[in-house]
Amino acid sequence: MPKVTATTIAVTALLLVGLTGCTGTTPSAGNESTAPAASEPAPPHVTESPTAEPEASDAEAAFLALVGESLPVETIIPDVTDAQLLAAGQEACDRLRAGEVPDTMSLIEGEQKNDADIYADSSAIISSARLTLCTDQLSG
């Protein structure tokens, strides 16, 4: 008789697991402390990022791709992060809007002009920013 009871309990447990997986209401009562905690953090990050500012994300992605292609091979900022590049791109836009001339701008502390008398890394960032982040600054 104990084998039947153990078997009955096991079969009942399997049926409950199968049924709760289909209904979606019963398992949350039993696993409420673990299931929502594991699933709650991920969806906000996944759903909020793309819908929050899709145009800004597209412009930022385009900027990062373009500046990545435009930076000189001998860049003085080999370990720069995307966040730092975006901040430099926004700074370039702000300074252009304030009337600064792109050819004279350096966005990187300590950057020196190259043999062509330009700030090569800053020039790549400024050009990329003008084409993607601050298209209102294309002239000049």
Score class of each variant (00 low, 15 high):
76 I>F: 01
78 P>W: 11
79 D>Y: 07
81 T>M: 07
82 D>G: 13
84 Q>V: 12
88 A>H: 11
89 G>Y: 04
89 G>A: 11
89 G>N: 09
89 G>H: 05
89 G>P: 05
90 Q>S: 13
91 E>K: 03
91 E>N: 04
91 E>S: 06
91 E>W: 00
95 R>V: 00
96 L>R: 06
97 R>S: 09
99 G>H: 09
100 E>T: 02
100 E>P: 01
100 E>H: 06
101 V>K: 10
102 P>Y: 04
102 P>N: 03
103 D>S: 15
105 M>L: 15
106 S>V: 11
106 S>F: 13
107 L>H: 05
108 I>S: 04
108 I>Y: 03
109 E>F: 14
110 G>I: 05
110 G>V: 06
110 G>D: 07
111 E>F: 09
112 Q>W: 08
112 Q>P: 07
112 Q>H: 12
112 Q>Y: 11
115 D>K: 07
115 D>W: 01
116 A>G: 05
116 A>W: 05
119 Y>D: 00
119 Y>E: 01
120 A>I: 03
121 D>V: 03
121 D>L: 04
121 D>K: 01
123 S>W: 13
123 S>M: 10
123 S>Y: 14
124 A>R: 06
125 I>V: 15
127 S>G: 14
128 S>W: 11
129 A>I: 13
131 L>Y: 09
132 T>K: 11
132 T>G: 12
133 L>M: 10
133 L>G: 02
134 C>L: 12
